[in-house]
């Protein structure tokens, strides 16, 4: 579905260079949900952007073999001045998806009643769910999610987890970056940890209880559990 083979990415920042990714390799298989953990600046967002073609790998190879890819960046895609329905109509047309998908996906994320609300007037949790609805419009085979739960209250996080788990049960592959160990463990079957652009852990989530996941993360960060 999605794979990185020895991918490195170097950014030029003025006179200095920053290595955002350093020889990262992993594959997200069909129907697999993978959580990508790591502190700020570890290369999570760069990984997602490389898979979406928004960044070019300095070396190595990134490929996506999924037919349809849905994604949520850590930045909004919806125009605050327009209603949720108008926004989704625009993206449905752009992605050549029947408009009937809008009502179905708004129902999936519990926002059918907000279709005629301006996006700017929605709460943060509603906006995040709206972004998920947008990403699901095409019935994607692969979902790339960058920090989908950040800034959400526990109730909104639970609603989002339910939506994502339903997609995994439907056979959708997911690569989800997060700082939130709990949400990753509840949604994903496998956990990757990035540190300073290097992949330092790759474990099945089934092997880890919440304490085990925290211990894995802290160990990967070079700190005692």
């Amino acid at each position: 579905m999605a794979s990185l083979q020895d991918v490195s990415k170097v950014f030029e920042k003025g006179s200095r260079t920053v290595k955002a990714l350093d020889g990262v390799s992993f594959t997200v298989n069909r129907g697999e949900a993978v959580g990508l953990l790591g502190p700020n600046g570890s290369g999570k967002t760069t990984t997602v952007r490389i898979l979406l073609g928004l960044r070019k790998a300095t070396s190595g190879r990134a490929s996506v073999s999924a037919g349809k890819v849905g994604f949520v960046l850590d930045l909004p895609a919806l125009y605050p001045q327009l209603t949720l329905a108008r926004n989704l109509e625009f993206y449905a047309d752009l992605l050549q998806v029947p408009r009937s998908a809008i009502d179905r996906r708004l129902g999936d994320v519990g926002l059918r009643g907000e279709a005629e609300s301006r996006v700017g007037e929605l709460s943060l949790g509603m906006k995040k769910r709206a972004e998920i609805a947008r990403a699901l419009l095409t019935d994607p085979d692969l979902l790339l999610l960058d920090e989908p739960t950040s800034g959400l209250d526990p109730e909104a996080q639970a609603a989002l987890r339910a939506v994502l788990r339903a997609e995994v049960e439907r056979g959708v592959s997911i690569l989800m970056t997060s700082h939130d160990l709990y949400n990753v463990q509840k949604v994903c079957g496998r956990v990757l940890v990035l540190r300073h652009g290097r992949l330092v852990a790759d474990e099945p989530a089934a092997n880890l209880d919440p304490a085990g996941l925290e211990a894995l993360y802290l160990h990967a960060m070079g700190r005692p559990a």
Binding site: L52, G53, L54, F71, L73, D74, L75, P76, A77, L78, Y79, P80, Y91, L94, L95
Partner: peptide
């Protein structure tokens, strides 16, 4: 300005 500063542009670039 809105598209550039909010990231809407990045999202749309990911679709085209």
């Amino acid at each position: 300005l809105l598209e550039r500063t909010t990231g809407i542009l990045d999202n749309q670039l990911g679709m085209v």
